[in-house]
Design a protein around this nucleic acid. Structure first.
Lengths: 208, 208
DNA sequence: GAATGTGAAGGTTTTCACAGCA
DNA sequence: TGCTGTGAAAACCTTCACATTC
């Protein structure tokens, strides 16, 4: 299969969300045009995106909401569950543990790590906080497939290196740093600073 | 000026971060090649990006670190400060208030709104929490330029409509919904669910 | 000699436009 | 008739390559 672009995946996420809503409203069929409108894309875009994965629609009619939703779920890997570990239980880490979307998407937080002695050994919303010193060993033992980095920027690269060393190949990063990972590791960063800079640019260049 | 692409703005953010580091290390000059290497871009890309805004380098030498940093800051609007309001002080909102990067980028949280009577009227890290009922009036009175939406998804569109109604044209959204805004409003969403779906896709399609 | 700044070339993504099917 | 699925065209973004400048 041809390599699928990042933007296509992002849009699939959005289609998925729209389809969830439609399903709740008992809509059974939707056209590329309507699906496009609710996300400000073009109908052709929607059809192209979907066409990379097969043909799910009926000519003259549109797409079956529930089937398409399931199909996208399977493309995005939302049917499976993944073993996740969180490193760092500060403000961000803490918010993440209570973030329901996580579970809903099949990301199960199995382990939490921190370096703060006051936190280690205690329970955090039902999950025991382990010493970050045992990271490597425990990641392997618990078959962790993804790690969330929510430590201060200054520590982030060190943690990433250990995580990669333990064989984890998918990382979600919340630190504001340029992290280096080998080719075969997927790293996505939720870079608030960058979002802010986009907004700042928009604000500064707004037509009045 | 030709419209600047989103990706160029994202990269400027990253260059900016690199330049900050270099300045701390007392490096005075940097070539497009070095700037590229530290972010996994190409030298040509760096030069193109910068060329949209002027010519800041010296042929045969490179770019002056401190000047280039300031120049990018001014492009991204980081020299100015913006009046910001936060709507919703749950897990996310709360984490945002303590997020230092915010202030550093010139986003000053002037107002916090919530609909929870237990929170209204109380102080939250030095900022008084107001009733979301007074949103429209208070946004105008305080000359708020940007609003952060950190309310449950079900409420988000309602809040956005009010915010837009009050004349705010820049919104940072943390709710997991497709929000609708008029053409002239800049909306950026920090969509965790989307990030997760990218990772989920990566995990599901990882070559073993 | 070394590195910028930039047209032109090369890629990738998006949109167009229409054949094909319900 | 109405809407999908898809090659082809257009738009957009990235890289190349070199003239230009220090």
């Amino acid at each position: 299969m041809r390599r699928i672009s990042e933007s296509t995946i992002s849009r699939l996420s959005l289609y998925y969300r729209t389809l969830e809503t439609l399903q709740r409203e008992n809509v059974t069929t939707i056209s590329s045009g309507e699906l496009a409108r609710s996300n400000k894309f073009t109908p052709a875009q929607v059809r192209k995106d979907l066409s990379f994965f097969g043909s799910f629609g009926t000519r003259g009619l549109g797409y079956p909401v529930s089937e398409l939703k399931d199909k996208i779920a399977s493309i995005l890997g939302l049917c499976k569950t993944w073993n996740v570990a969180l490193v760092g239980v500060g403000n961000v880490g803490s918010a993440l543990v209570s973030y329901k979307e996580f579970q809903r998407q099949g990301f199960i937080i199995k382990k939490i790590f921190d370096n703060d002695l006051r936190k280690i050994g205690k329970n955090h919303k039902g999950i025991l906080v382990s010493d970050v010193k045992n990271l490597n060993m425990e990641l392997k033992e618990n078959k962790i497939e993804m790690v969330i980095i929510a430590v201060p920027s200054s520590e982030a690269q060190k943690v990433v290196d250990e995580v990669v060393g333990a064989g984890v190949r998918t990382i979600l990063n919340f630190a504001t740093t340029n992290l280096k990972v080998p080719e075969n590791v997927v790293l996505r960063s939720v870079n608030m600073a960058m979002e802010l800079e986009h907004l700042s640019y928009a604000l500064a260049n707004q037509k009045r």
